[in-house]
Amino acid sequence: MSAADTIQRLDKQQLARRVARDIPEGAYVNLGIGLPTQVANYLDTAGDYFLHSENGILGMGPAPDEDHIDWDLINAGKQPVTLLNGGCFFHHGDSFSMMRGGHIDICVMGAYQVSTRGDLANWHTGDPDAIPAVGGAMDLAIGAKQVFVMMNLLTKTGESKLVEHCTYPLTGLGCVSRIYSELGVIDLGPDGAKVVEMVDNLTLEHLREMTGVDLTMAQ
């Protein structure tokens, strides 16, 4: 058996918990559709966090019970949500000014590919038969002060989603600051990819081998 079998990969819930640990109280945060939404489950309930939804909500709360579903109160994934005390509504112009204008502290998104310099590809696979749809991904990518990508570094077939150059259509250039993955946390930037932490029983050499990209340890 290879060393790979002892690597303590994070599962989705552990990953969501890990991302939540890096979101400070008081942060204005946009959580993308899908897995990033789970991060909300691990934010300290005693603290004040401001969840933003692109369709015009700040102070978004969890899903309602069945008796309190209101279809005028939905999130970006079109699922029913609630409004916390102190939450508010606004129109789409203001909502995207919050992103583009640099007022959102952190956004968490998924990705198809991320480059070591922080280029993001997460809106289109490039398949010519696919119906293209972009939503708010490009605005969030370039607008939030910090863009966290939450994804498995390796696809099911073992290909690395962290690459030197994205081959999928880009969402934004140099916009991702950090990747949270099943294998560890990696900072990205003009100087390349720097490993901040790795899961147990994983070595830098092994991580380089699996991803095929140049990685160094963060100082």
Binding site: H92, F96, M99, A133, V134, G136, A137, D139, L170
Partner: peptide
């Protein structure tokens, strides 16, 4: 296909009488 924030901003530009806008969203993309 228009990024959602650009859609909003372009609609606002029309309603506000602006001739055009410069937006960072979408730069360097298809």
């Amino acid at each position: 296909l228009v990024p959602q924030g650009n859609l909003a901003a372009r609609i606002q530009a029309a309603g506000s009488g602006l001739g055009a806008i410069f937006t960072p969203t979408g730069y360097g993309t298809k």
